[in-house]
Design a protein around this nucleic acid. Structure first.
Lengths: 232, 232
DNA sequence: TATCGATGTTACCGACCGGTAACATACCTT
DNA sequence: AAGGTATGTTACCGGTCGGTAACATCGATA
């Protein structure tokens, strides 16, 4: 019924969603049994609504009926576009991951040759997002908190994502010439995820998340070879 | 059916649960309408099972039928001890908070006059818990991730708990004479919660959580007045 | 032995869940 | 105007959910 008011998690950085034309030429051969190739306005609307609702109320907290209704459609149209709720959830997580990396890359792209500034920019961008009212931390991480360990597909997806985060932070720590780069990268990850986690509870930036950036700087300083702390 | 195999989150530190005698004298006047005064073996068994299940599979992921069955009882006996599932959930969160502070106090008690060592001991204890197979991070925080914001009672409870954590860390940072004690305390909280959050995904201590303690030390050093970094 | 409280058992309720069938409409294309 | 495609509508299914009623059983106590 009521319009969604969709505020995207990465709106703050201008990362575009999947609004690409979906031009009506059918590149997928028409006889695909599964639905994933389906292109339609309803499908897009439903998917966006689902993403929004999942993020705001949790995956278990939203039923397909509610999703379809909030998208101004109905359950039957939902099942014409998605084989099951679980398939939708998987797609939701994948989309979140896609948007996350787009956001990450955008934040980092401004300082191609300065890994230290890249890391700082990352935490600046995180803080910027945290200032949004609709921010509820990390979508993938929250999903991990509510799905049980034995839901293999989902938790594998989330695990792979988190491992990517870790790998990238390791790489950046190494690139800036840090002693004990792995340890620094891990510490950065703790600060990052700590920010997401606490943002779930504390409104806007009133929580400890504001302390992330100074801590990041101090930690990097502590891991840089004596004598060259400059670079910024 | 199968026995629970209850491994408590704070078993690692020897913090006892609510095993106190529950001596059969009824201090509560018998005509209390609500159940909370009820004392019985079944109730305790059900409650412990519920705590275990909630922690392992999430609150939405466990029904009262499953709880009662796993406790070797049945739904009817459940509702003789708890007014509703929601009431049980509230009690679960309260219990988790109680156990958490007991754990915290135990970790900190060994160094009554050394706030820096206290903080370090806290993170050591966290790492010790993270080594347990059954560890799934912070029970209260996970609950926050799966309940929607409009569940007032629960989220208020979690918020109060997190604010307590923050307050205590601020106090400790201040007590150790840190410059910018609030910022240091917040950074410590980010590391702490980051550890809980990542522990959800990474098995045992293979995740970034091992980097928490060194980072804590480096951050404290950076916040201590020049000249006196000793103390350990 | 009689009684009473705590517990187990069965059956049930209404609500909601994920998912489907059958049919009606509206629109776009030719 | 004709046909097809996308969408809406209604009704339904089996299962599970939180929650309750009625009755049976067991054990301690008096």
């Amino acid at each position: 019924m009521l319009p969604v008011g969709n505020i995207d998690i990465n709106r703050a950085l201008g990362v575009s969603s999947n609004k690409s034309g979906t031009s009506s030429g059918d590149e997928e051969s028409g006889l695909v049994a599964a639905i994933p190739g389906a292109k339609s306005r309803v499908r897009d609307r439903i998917f966006e609504t689902a993403c929004d609702l999942f993020y705001r109320h949790g995956i278990h907290g939203v039923g397909v009926d509610a999703i379809a209704a909030e998208a101004g459609s109905n359950k039957m149209s939902f099942y014409r576009s998605f084989v099951s709720k679980e398939a939708l959830v998987t797609e939701y997580l994948r989309e979140q991951e896609r948007e996350y990396w787009a956001w990450w890359d955008a934040a980092v792209a401004r300082f191609p040759d300065n890994p230290r500034r890249q890391v700082e920019a990352l935490f600046e961008a995180q803080l910027a997002i945290a200032m949004s009212n609709s921010c509820r931390g990390c979508a993938l991480g929250n999903a991990a908190a509510e799905i049980s360990d034995d839901e293999d597909e989902l938790s594998t997806l989330v695990r792979a994502y988190k491992e990517q985060v870790r790998k990238r932070l390791h790489a950046m720590a190494h690139a800036m010439g840090a002693r004990d780069a792995e340890s620094l990268g891990d510490a950065l990850m703790l600060l990052l995820d700590g920010g997401y986690f606490t943002r779930l509870i504390f409104p806007l930036a009133s929580g400890p998340i504001s302390a992330a950036l100074p801590a990041v700087r101090a930690l990097i300083d502590a891991h840089l070879p004596r004598g060259r702390q400059p670079n910024q």
